[in-house]
């Protein structure tokens, strides 16, 4: 699946997007898998209360299943307007 990052999440991980091969069942499982990879992921995902997630470009939550999802986006709370 395609995983995309914005704002400081992108900066901390050092990539705007990547393709991830995963069997993670939920967003939380995917976060655990990425965090175990490298310190920069663990640092970005250290406090998920400071993060938001979108699945296929719709806001979602960390317990949501990833079945059939093509794009997961992680970012801080939005500051539009």
């Amino acid at each position: 699946m395609n995983v995309v990052y914005f704002a400081w999440v992108r900066e901390r991980i050092g990539l705007p997007q990547e393709t991830v091969e995963t069997g993670a069942a939920t967003v939380k499982d995917l976060i655990a898998e990425l965090s175990a990879r490298e310190e920069r992921y663990a640092a970005a995902f250290a406090d998920i209360s400071a993060l938001r997630v979108a699945l296929d470009q719709e806001l979602s939550d960390f317990d949501a299943p990833l079945d059939g999802v093509r794009e997961v986006a992680f970012f801080p709370p939005m500051t539009g307007g």
Binding site: A7, A54, F75, P76, P77, M78, T79, G80, G81
Partner: peptide, 26 residues
Amino acid sequence: LMDYLKSRAPFWKKEVTAQGASWVDA
């Protein structure tokens, strides 16, 4: 519309000053 655009439209602001750049916290 303004209340929702502020917190639910996927934009992120970063301020750049002579001291450096920092993301604006929600």
